[in-house]
Design a protein around this nucleic acid. Structure first.
Length: 880
RNA sequence: GGGCGGUUAGCUCAGUUGGUAGAGCUCCUGACUUACAUUCAGGCGGCCGUUGGUUCGAGUCCAGCACCGCCCACCA
């Protein structure tokens, strides 16, 4: 049965997606005979639609998963989605805004109901898209970070950590997003360099209002909340002033000058205004010196009643207004431009505000210590290795993790407070932390309890992903068999957010690392190197590429470019499309010319003496390629693996082997070798291009088991034949030499030529003698003579390969007059060019006296041209 | 301020332990065509960022410098 003349990926992709899923080929179950190989997918946000980053990330995972599956592992690729607290809430709020409502109009329960509805409707979009990509996940296991079972795991984690005193609640300066109106963790505040200003403000002395101390700040509006000015105790300029009282301008509050080592005398004026409620540094100083903490801001970043005349004003408006007011009072000494990094909300890009508030935190040092060790002592390896240092640096300097969020969509914090005014004992202040909803206060017995309003950071659920997806905290067979996992594939952006925390949680709760390899891949950018984003409008949609070029093409092209950050444009995907097409057509050629293939036929049974050089060569090339491909995949060098496959199949198999055997396809052994190489190639291409390979496979093996569960070929050492590879290389070069002569001398392909091969090297003599056919067929040679010396014929074109001369007598082959004319024209062109140089040199006066380098350069060109002219003249002479 | 990565053909990138610089795309020339024009054959095109060092020999190893990019950081 033949393949259709044109490869049409659109006809086959959906068919195989459906087939694989219906036959349950990707489902993994605990299996006493096989070793497990496990990857958990980085769960995409439910709000997500497939972008190039996902496509790259998931293709990489799919390659190794399919590879391991074919290598006999019980492979589990765990799929699922993340509830993405802030992102999802934002989407639904935007929807509400269109209806002129906000979430408070609906109330918490109604809003959550609405969000769940949204999730049911759109939350699986990305899962469907991943299937189109060919991802071989165990779809039946698809998890969501807010599944009921999963929620139990999250609660359990919170309660356990609280019991171990690794979770605490307290008033601290956190990153506050005034738009999302929630706290953020340090990692969620993205620092970006921005041009700002450094305002120098004079704070007058209480006893001498005309004099004062000058402080420098980038956020003058926070001065309204100042409760001190600090200087370094060693700073000679200010030593005498320590303890003096100042009048805080605009507020007319008395504040004092205090001394603290945190102050750097070299920055600004060396005197720092201290705003303990609005700056992390100042907070520390405030605690140390028992200062007042004055919060001057509403949660939406408008100034509050503590801001005096500026109440109600937005923070940035207030900044201008305050600068102006200070200027009017002649207290603004100067304003200078200043570059500094400002935190932005990673979800909405709003400038975050350091804000004092009561939040829940995870104490990280005890969790980080064993997680750091696991990487330092090599139990977990990063690929490429350089990320190890990024990880260890962060872990060594880890800070506590703010996990409470003032939003509604997420895991509600499992904490209740006693709100009974009448019987409140001092113990009733204690939070009640519980897996289940408590009915009464354990201290006073009151049933007036109120649950904490906040939800947990999304990452507080995703850091449990490697085991919560397997049913933890309940023990079960899956968990026992599939944990710990094998590898994790992700982008560098979430090493801190996710990778590090999974390692911590795995060790803390499962007493074992969650995976032993972490592969960090590059970022996908556009052709100009910018990150792809919807707002820039430069995003290439993977689905569009799948539609236009096919999923195999998308996958192959992405991976072959994935050595580092990728710069993609539409044309970059042609390589994959063309390659899929090449595979298809090679298969067509072979299927057209082979029949009744003996299924028992095996390449390793072929004796080298029984077959020709080209066959030995291609069998050896297949095995040496396979050996290298295996090594590349095992060490996560995927683009290298694809390059090896591409070169083997296209440059060796198609361009040479198939061309050589085309006219002897009637030979049974040849048929079998070609068929077998194709069949084995399909297997090793399958992880990279699952669709086209499965299609061809099922075509040649109808009714048999699918390609995706075929055993991976083994490297047959007996087939590795360096001598054949080297010898074939000589033949290839000889053919190339002949082709070269043809082009050089304008000998049309139709024109059969006579060729002499001359060598005194015994081995090469035999080689050419035995493989004359290759030269004859691919070089279109009519008569080939192999001898020790060239005949004494004039007018031969000679090319040298190794120690062998390949010569073609030109005599009758070329039209001498035509050739003469062609060369004459060439000579004329060269002469004109030479004349132009001479002319220019004369015009510019260089010919007589000039800087040596200029003349040398031109002289070089002149000489080169003259040399070429001479050579061409010799050629003309020879033609006679 | 600290750390990391990059600099090789016009473009995008390979280059394994030091040993005559490679691929794809682009461009140019050509193509007996029943596997493929998403093809085939051939060609043009590189002081391998810069300076110095180690070596018989450096794109590759070492040091400095320049430029580009990324990450981290509580100098207000």
């Amino acid at each position: 049965m033949e393949l259709s003349p044109r490869f049409n990926f659109k006809d086959i992709e959906d068919k195989w997606v459906k087939f694989w899923e219906e036959k349950n080929l990707f489902h993994a179950t605990p299996n006493s005979k096989k070793k497990p190989y496990v990857i958990v997918i980085p769960p995409p946000n439910v709000t997500g639609i497939l972008h190039m980053g996902h496509a790259l990330n998931c293709t990489l995972q799919d390659i190794i998963i399919r590879y391991k599956r074919m290598n006999g592992f019980e492979t589990l690729w765990m799929p699922g989605t993340d509830h993405a607290g802030i992102a999802t809430q934002n989407v639904v709020e935007k929807q509400l805004a269109k209806e002129g409502k906000n979430r408070h109009h609906l109330g918490r329960d109604e809003f959550l109901k609405r969000t769940w509805e949204w999730k049911e409707q759109y939350g699986n979009t990305i899962i469907h898209q991943l299937k189109k990509l060919g991802a071989s996940c165990d779809w039946a296991r698809t998890r969501f970070t807010m599944d009921e079972e999963y929620s139990e795991a999250v609660k359990y984690t919170f309660v356990e950590l609280y019991k171990k005193k690794l979770i605490y609640r307290g008033q601290y300066i956190i990153n506050w997003c005034p738009r999302c109106q929630t706290a953020l963790s340090d990692e969620e505040a993205e620092h970006k360099e921005k041009q700002g200003f450094l305002y120098h403000i004079r704070y007058p002395f209480e006893d001498n209002p005309n004099e004062g101390i000058v402080v420098a700040t980038t956020r003058p509006e926070t001065m309204l909340g100042d409760t001190a000015v600090a200087v370094n105790p060693k700073d000679k300029r200010y030593k005498k002033l320590i303890g003096k009282t100042l009048i805080l301008p605009l507020m007319n509050r008395e504040i004092r000058i205090i001394a603290d080592e945190l102050v750097d005398p070299a920055f600004g004026t060396g005197a720092v205004k201290v705003t303990p409620a609005h700056d992390p540094n100042d907070f520390t100083i405030g605690m140390k010196h028992s200062l007042d903490f004055i919060n001057i801001m509403h949660p939406d970043a408008r100034l509050n009643e503590e801001a005096g005349d500026f109440e109600g004003m937005d923070r940035f408006k207030a900044r201008e207004a305050i600068a102006k007011a200070l200027q009017e009072r002649k207290l603004l000494v100067k304003v200078e431009p200043h570059m500094h990094a400002i935190g932005h909300c990673y979800r909405c890009n709003t400038v975050v505000e350091p804000y004092l508030s009561k939040q829940w935190f995870v104490k990280m040092k005890p969790l980080a210590k064993p997680a750091l060790k696991a990487v330092v002592d090599g139990r977990i390896k990063f690929y490429p290795d350089r990320w190890t240092k990024v990880y260890t640096n962060w872990m060594e300097d880890i800070r506590d993790w703010c996990i409470s969020r003032q939003i509604w969509w997420g895991h509600r914090i499992p904490v209740w407070y006693c709100v009974n005014d009448e019987h409140t004992t001092s113990q009733c202040q204690e939070p009640i932390v519980s897996m289940t909803t408590p009915t009464k206060c354990p201290y006073c017995g009151s049933s007036k309890l109120k649950q904490d309003e906040d939800v947990l950071d999304t990452w507080f659920s995703s850091w449990l992903w490697p085991f919560a997806t397997l049913g933890w905290p309940k023990e079960n067979k899956d968990l026992k068999y599939f944990y710990p996992g094998s590898a994790l594939f992700t982008a560098s952006e979430i090493i801190f957010f996710w990778v590090a925390r999974m390692i911590m949680s795995g060790i803390a709760f499962k007493k074992d690392i969650p995976f032993s390899s972490v592969y960090i891949h590059g970022t996908v950018r556009d052709a100009k190197g910018r990150k792809m984003s919807k707002s820039l409008g430069n995003a290439l949609d993977p689905l569009e590429i799948i539609h236009e070029y096919g999923a195999d093409a998308l996958r192959f092209s992405l991976i072959i470019n994935s050595g580092q950050d990728l710069f993609v444009s539409k044309e970059k995907f042609e390589i994959g499309r063309n390659f899929a097409n090449k595979i298809w057509n090679a298969a067509r050629l072979i299927l057209m010319n082979t029949k009744d293939i003996d299924p028992e036929f095996d390449l390793i049974k072929i004796k080298f003496n029984d077959t020709d050089l080209a066959s030995q060569w291609i069998i050896s090339r297949f095995n040496s390629t396979l050996e290298k491909v295996n090594a590349a995949i095992e060490t996560y060098r995927f683009s290298e693996a694809e390059t090896l496959l591409y070169d083997f199949f296209w440059s060796n198999f198609c361009d040479w082997y198939l061309e050589i055997i085309k006219d002897r396809f009637d030979d049974r052994t040849t048929q079998h070798i070609a068929f077998k190489i194709l069949e084995q190639s399909l297997k090793i291409f399958h992880p990279f291009m699952p669709f086209v390979t499965e299609e061809i496979w099922q075509h040649i093996h109808p009714g048999e088991e699918a390609l995706c569960i075929q055993p991976w070929p083994t490297v047959e050492k007996i087939c590795l034949n360096k001598e054949a590879e080297d010898n074939m290389q000589v033949m290839i070069e000889a053919v190339s030499a002949l082709r070269n002569i043809r082009v050089q001398w304008n000998i049309p392909l139709q024109q059969r030529i006579e060729t002499f091969v001359a060598t005194t090297n015994n081995q090469e003599f035999l080689l050419f003698n035995n493989n004359a056919k290759i030269l004859q067929r691919l070089g279109r040679v009519e008569k080939l003579s192999v001898a020790a010396q060239l005949p004494t014929t004039h007018n031969v074109a000679i090319s040298v390969v190794g120690t062998t001369k390949i010569a073609v007598p030109l005599g009758a082959l070329i039209d001498v007059n035509k050739e003469k004319q062609r060369i004459s024209t060439q000579i004329e062109e060269q002469r004109r060019a030479a004349q132009a140089i001479v002319g220019r040199l004369q015009n510019e006066g260089f010919l007589k006296k000039a800087p040596a380098n200029v003349v040398d350069e031109d002289r070089g060109r002149l000489e080169a041209l003259n040399k070429e002219i001479k050579e061409l003249e010799i050629v003309i002479a020879n033609l006679n």
